[in-house]
């Protein structure tokens, strides 16, 4: 039972981070980022591709990259189990690196949008993300591809049976920080211009703002945040295997969450993430019981896909604007007006 709740909370934290970043781009900025999985993958590449190479170099390990990673990860894990600060240090280092890498990748991949309408932009981002995914999958030299590489367990100093809880707490803390950061950001002039841009680009241009710069900035921030989720997920599973970063789990699910929670409402998205993960895990958890109850002649796994699909359709149908609607902006002057 505790495991189930921990698992729900962990993925709630992870999906909250990714979905909030998507909400910034899509909900507030109107950029349909159907390539979200790429930016989560960027975080994974930072750990698997950069941190691992640094460790291999530091320990002076010979041999092919994948096997050497296993040894490096093992040695580092041993060190961390003696020294908690080291583990946290590595985590923070990777998060910072992922923020930088995510921002760069995000900014670069939005450049084509200078020419594109929204639906084409979405498809282009999806295609770019698939291309990178396929190359990383088949080329085992970069981050181990389909073999994957091991990464150090940054919480190795915590006894095994409690480590899951610790990762969950870590994830939740990161999610809270991201949420607070975004709330602040979106209540600044930047956030207001971003919403204006979504509604009417020309208006923003008329006010003398550079639309392209705004988009690049938004994608950079959004992608940096998504990359953080990638880092957390990699450390939690102590390995980078590229097929874990596919488009269903890291692009389509976040979209479903944003639409479910309410476009342009961060609180709604958090709630959406919670309901989504809760439903998904509960179906997953109880599918065997449902199968026995109904005496179904096929495996419960199929039932899980069907139920989940139907629920998603029902939600889209009955809550088209999401659980929570977008709230009007309360700038300090407006607030003081209301309070009067």
């Amino acid at each position: 039972m505790v495991e189930l709740i921990t698992l729900i909370l962990f993925f709630f934290a992870l999906y909250t981070i990714v979905s909030l970043s998507l909400n910034l781009e899509f909900g507030y900025g109107g950029i349909p980022n159907f390539g979200k999985a790429l930016y989560v993958l960027t975080g994974a590449v930072v750990v698997g591709g950069i941190l691992n190479r640094l460790l291999i170099w530091y320990f002076g390990i010979e041999g092919d990259f994948i096997s050497a990673s296993s040894i490096a990860a093992y040695k580092m894990t041993e060190l961390i189990s003696q020294n908690p600060l080291l583990g946290l240090g590595i985590f923070i280092f990777c998060v910072l690196l992922a923020i930088v890498a995510g921002a760069i990748v995000g900014a670069l991949s939005i450049l084509p949008s200078a020419k594109l309408k929204e639906d084409y932009l979405g498809v282009t981002l999806l295609a770019i993300s698939e291309v990178v995914y396929l190359i990383l999958f088949y080329n085992t030299e970069i981050v181990g591809g389909y073999y994957g590489v091991s990464t150090p367990d940054i919480l190795a100093f915590i006894p095994g049976e409690y480590r899951m809880y610790a990762y969950t707490v870590l994830g939740l803390i990161c999610a809270i920080i991201v949420y607070l950061f975004l709330e602040r950001l979106l209540n600044s002039p930047y956030g207001r211009i971003l919403r204006g841009h979504r509604e009417n680009e020309d208006l923003i241009k008329a006010f003398g703002r550079d639309v392209m710069k705004l988009r690049v900035k938004t994608m950079a921030i959004g992608s940096a945040i998504a990359a953080i989720a990638g880092v957390i997920f990699v450390f939690y599973s102590a390995s980078v295997v590229v097929n874990a970063f596919n488009r269903v789990e890291w692009t389509f699910y976040p979209f479903l969450i944003v639409l479910l929670g309410g476009k342009g409402n961060n609180r709604g998205v958090v709630l959406g993430a919670f309901i989504f993960v809760l439903l998904k895990m509960l179906i997953d958890f109880y599918k065997f019981d449902i199968k026995y109850l109904l005496h179904l002649p096929f495996e419960a796994v199929w039932l899980q896909y069907i139920i989940f699909g139907i629920l998603a359709l029902l939600i889209l149908c009955y809550k088209p604007e999401g659980i929570l609607k977008e709230r009007p902006i309360f700038t300090p002057p407006i607030k003081s007006r209301i309070n009067e």
């Binding site: 989940f308 998603a312 359709l313």
Partner: peptide
């Protein structure tokens, strides 16, 4: 976007039905 996501959900249902 909602319609797109709806086709994805439908895709998941079809996938489940095919498997079963």
């Amino acid at each position: 976007e909602m319609l797109m996501i709806a086709t994805l959900a439908w895709d998941l249902i079809l996938f489940g039905i095919t498997g079963a």
